[in-house]
Design a protein around this nucleic acid. Structure first.
Lengths: 338, 338
DNA sequence: TGCTGGCACTCGCACGGCGTGAGTGCCAAG
DNA sequence: CTTGGCACTCACGCCGTGCGAGTGCCAGCA
């Protein structure tokens, strides 16, 4: 177990390195932090910390920088999430307040988060699986062509074109629309399937094929079409990464373009509470020199999607975590209102 | 007027510089191209071209590189758009063929274009103004709350929440829905306003306020909500820009994040035919060292939106223009089919 | 008049040696 | 266990040099 002071030294190293982006030495440390000991002592502590793998030197006889393991210890034990100032909170609220629809909410959130953290922001659209049905609409576009429109409580709208096996009359359509809505409105997606299973039986034999087709399309939309979408922003902040550019930035940009990768990334995070993945903890290779801070958000008490930021492992964890948490809360609030 | 050979020299300079990314000298030129004259002659020609402002030397006694003006002359007079190979065409077609909805079409297009040109691709969603109405749906969510859903022939779906001035019955709603659709389905957006103007008169006095509200929301959606959306991709290709990184890439990433800037950029392009804006011809400062190749595309013969790529001024213009034009054609085709 | 080979000149760039200084590890004393 | 002292180590920046690609000019030739 590391002594109290050694942890303090680690904390100081992380803070200084995050601030200056330069390896930090024993002398500079004692000058900037009142540790109450001499540089020589700090050197001993540093040697111990290095032994344990919490810090490393880029070159012999240069200062130390934290390792992934060091950052991990820092966020787990040494860092308190920094709450935002109240002007900041107000700014967030005002900024999100003006949103007119779901796209706008997500768009504003992503810009806000990018600006606040000065890093790359990722916001997942509220997931379909956990939300509830607000309305199902059926439109007859042609005798044997129906459009299914699904509206969710988070304001998301999905539409599907359906080619029916047989012509389907207006009255049957209205009947199906009414029955469908009376059964599923207000229900969570996961609960829908058993509720509509027996619907075909209520119809004439000739219509049953179409009803089944519509139902299966609806279920597909609910389940399979839980293909999550997301929005990213603040990629320009990547230029602040480091001086050794192309090598660092390239794989990150590539990873960000692969929505699949990002979705997996967010998916791996805990469902509740904040998740911080540091450097090599990220499965995707391109993100090995970045950290991802993510958290779930939702309209009710429950999380329906996740948002977060991607930045260099050398980031201001307390500040970033504070911003991410605050934004998630406010977005949840906004979603609940609309 | 420049002699035939001098134009030929300019063409050779552009081609070589695009290929090697290095200033090109007289000797190298004569070696790689059979100009039939000696380096000394080429030197004289280069001096003349420099005099006219078509090329410049980065440092005294280094090779020449084309100026914006030089590229302009090149694309206007010296370059033929390079048609794609037929395997490439087939690949485009196959890749776009599988799209399931509008988002998917746009997403695939942007990835395709980025991959093909190895640059940043920008695709505008089909504009609302020029398309036609496929269906208007009205849903009663609460006694005085109506949702308006607009479906366009390009597959786009827009929804709006409407708070009614007075409760609005199901029958009135059905009535309005029927009348509305019979008048506007198949119409171009621009033609809709006069067609619905007198609709309120057909309703009871108590409903007129609501009908007016719905109509004005619809018109707003049609016109004001022509706020174009767009999708970008291939930002990772920016890393191939140059060696003097952060300075070059930063403003470009920033510009790309501002959808407004991009929309203006595409808006400035000609409505028909391909537009190439080179370096400082771009109004936005961050894009002064990039060129933008854009073209309109549409489902019918007419353009409904634009797409293009953003790359370094030092780009393969013939190839890029060929790819952009080909992709635009195929997308138009796909849109017409669906 | 226009093209060519020759020639002297320029200057960016890569290379190698050198001095500097921040930072380290070790040690002996408090 | 802490502290001051001390010798050692490199990364980094600076500078001078040589090289070579490229230029401009000029005189000769078709």
């Amino acid at each position: 177990m590391l002594s109290e002071r050694r942890l303090e030294v680690l904390r100081a190293i992380v803070q200084d390195y995050v601030g200056t982006e330069e390896p930090v030495g024993s002398k500079a440390l004692t000058e900037r932090h009142k540790l109450g000991v001499s540089p020589a002592t700090v050197r001993n502590d540093m040697a111990a910390l290095e032994e344990e793998g919490y810090i490393a030197q880029p070159h012999t006889s240069a200062g130390r920088i934290p390792t992934d393991k060091g950052y991990r210890l820092f966020v787990d034990k040494l860092a308190a999430v920094k709450p935002l100032s109240s002007p900041e909170r107000r700014a967030i609220h005002n900024f999100l307040e003006g949103a007119v629809d779901l796209d706008d909410v997500v768009g504003r959130t992503v810009r806000l988060l990018a600006q606040l953290t000065r890093q790359v922001a990722v916001v997942q659209y509220p997931s379909l699986t956990r939300s509830t049905v607000r309305h199902v609409e059926l439109l007859s576009l042609a005798p044997a062509r129906v459009m299914l429109v699904l509206i969710t409580d988070t304001g998301r709208v999905e539409q599907r074109m359906i080619d029916c096996p047989a012509p389907f009359g207006e009255t049957s359509l209205a009947d199906l629309r009414a029955r469908l809505n009376s059964r599923v409105v207000g229900r969570r997606f996961a609960d829908v399937p058993p509720l509509v299973q027996d619907l075909p039986e209520a119809f004439e034999a000739e219509d049953r094929g179409t009803v089944s087709t519509v139902l299966s399309t609806l279920l597909e939309t609910l389940v399979e079409e839980t293909e999550e979408r997301l929005m990213i922003g603040g990629t320009a902040n990547l230029t602040r990464f480091g001086h050794d550019f192309p090598l660092t930035i390239r794989p990150v940009l590539e990873a960000l373009e692969e929505q699949v990768v990002l979705l997996k990334l967010l998916g791996e995070a805990k469902d509740s509470g904040m998740t911080v993945r540091i450097g090599h903890e990220n499965a995707h290779e391109g993100l090995n020199s970045t950290s991802v801070v993510s958290v779930g958000y939702g309209s009710g008490g429950e999380a329906v999607a996740k948002l977060g930021v991607v930045g260099p492992t050398r980031m201001d964890y307390p500040g970033t975590m504070g911003a991410v948490r605050a934004v998630a809360r406010y977005v949840g609030q906004i979603l609940a209102e609309s």
